[in-house]
Simulated scan of single mutants.
Amino acid sequence: MNVENAVHDAHYFVPSPSRWPIVGAVALFCLGLGAALAINQVASGRWVLLIGAGVLLWMLIGWFGDVVHESESGSYGQQVDYSFRWGMSWFIFSEVMFFAAFFGALFYTRTISVPELGFFSETQRMLWPNFQADWPMATGPKSAAYQAMHPFGLPAINTALLLTSGVTLTWAHWGLLQQQRRVLSLGLGLTIVLGVLFLCLQAYEYQHAWSELKLTLASGAYGATFYLLTGFHGMHVLVGTLILTTMWLRVQRGHFTPLQHFGFEAAAWYWHFVDVVWLGLFVFVYVL
Rank of each mutant, 00 (worst) to 15 (best):
A145Q: 08
L249A: 11
L229D: 14
A148G: 09
C30I: 01
A160Y: 11
N2L: 15
A221W: 00
T225R: 09
P21T: 06
W128F: 12
R182C: 00
E70R: 13
G62H: 02
G223V: 00
G166H: 04
G62Q: 13
A145I: 02
W63M: 15
W248K: 13
G62R: 04
A27N: 15
L31M: 08
E205Q: 03
L177K: 13
G34F: 09
Y108F: 08
G74W: 08
W278S: 08
F152Q: 10
V196L: 14
F284H: 12
V96Y: 10
Q260S: 12
L176N: 06
F262I: 02
T109L: 02
L190Y: 05
R181V: 05
V23Q: 15
S16M: 11
W58E: 14
F226I: 06
A145C: 05
G118V: 00
W174H: 11
F262W: 10
N2C: 15
V3D: 09
L154T: 01
W128T: 06
L194M: 03
L56A: 04
G223M: 10
A148M: 15
V96N: 09
S83T: 02
V67D: 10
M126E: 08
M59K: 11
L244K: 03
L49C: 13
D66Y: 08
T111L: 04
A266R: 03
F131Q: 00
N2P: 13
G220R: 05
G54S: 12
G263S: 09
M235S: 10
S219T: 03
S121H: 13
H236G: 01
W248V: 10
N40A: 01
V183S: 08
L281Y: 14
E205Y: 03
A38Q: 01
L229Y: 11
A172W: 08
G234H: 02
L163Y: 03
Y286P: 06
I39F: 14
Y204G: 07
A25W: 15
S73K: 14
F198Q: 02
V67K: 12
V26C: 15
L199C: 05
P141T: 07
S18M: 15
L197Q: 12
L249Q: 10
A221M: 11
M126Q: 06
H69V: 03
C200F: 07
Q78C: 12
